[in-house]
Amino acid sequence: MEMTSGFGCNNFNFAVYIANKPNMREYQDITQVSPLNKGEIHAIGQACGNGWRKVFNVYAKLLYALNTKDFAYSSLAPSWQMYRDNYLFQTNSKTALLFSPPQLNENTDTLHIICGKTYAKQLIASDKLKTHLVWLDDEFAIDTSQKLIICPYFDYRQLSNVKIDKLAFMLSELKNA
């Protein structure tokens, strides 16, 4: 069993899984879930480029788009940018960006999102993901019992604002299932 590793709160209940990690020496051997400090998201974006800025921005935009009756993230800051800079992946944020395969458990309230259809298919092919997915269309799949959604990669072109809204709706449905 692989250790869970990535950025965020150790006690997360909202997890996004991504195939790669920032190309910075300090993150290559990460073996646990570690909270980021204020300013660290900006530093990663500066060092690693626009791709990582998009991942962080789309993650924050998604949290901010969630229904406030089901999720309180947007109540913490007046904008998704301020949420990203002051709360995302920090201690007690309940959010995580994980570089390890999902450890799914039907007896938890944690919501799981795999970032990208290609990554999800790699996990399934390598037997690192055991799930009963229902493909809703060419881009989104869901396993309600494991509270898992597959969605497009966190990039503005692949996960547009319209698709962020669709994913936000799906997450509320999944949380209340």
Rank of each mutant, 00 (worst) to 15 (best):
I142F: 02
K163S: 10
K117C: 04
T144A: 14
T68Y: 06
L133S: 14
K94V: 08
L62N: 01
Y73R: 06
K38A: 12
K117R: 14
Q90F: 05
K69D: 14
T118Y: 08
Q46R: 14
L66W: 10
K128C: 11
A65G: 09
I124K: 02
H42R: 12
A125W: 00
N50C: 02
L98C: 12
D138C: 04
Y87A: 12
E106Y: 12
C48K: 00
L111N: 10
S79I: 11
I30H: 02
K130M: 06
Q122F: 00
K54N: 15
P35C: 09
I114R: 04
M170H: 08
D138S: 14
I142G: 01
L129D: 12
L63E: 02
A43Y: 06
N50W: 00
Y87T: 09
L98P: 04
D143T: 10
L88N: 13
Y64R: 06
H42I: 10
A120L: 05
L104N: 10
A60S: 15
A96F: 03
W135S: 08
H112S: 08
T95M: 09
N67S: 15
S79F: 09
N50S: 14
T118I: 12
Q28L: 13
F89S: 05
N57S: 15
L104F: 01
C48S: 04
R53M: 11
A47N: 11
T68V: 12
R157V: 10
A120V: 00
T68P: 13
G45A: 12
V33W: 01
L104K: 01
D143W: 03
T68K: 14
F140S: 14
L129A: 08
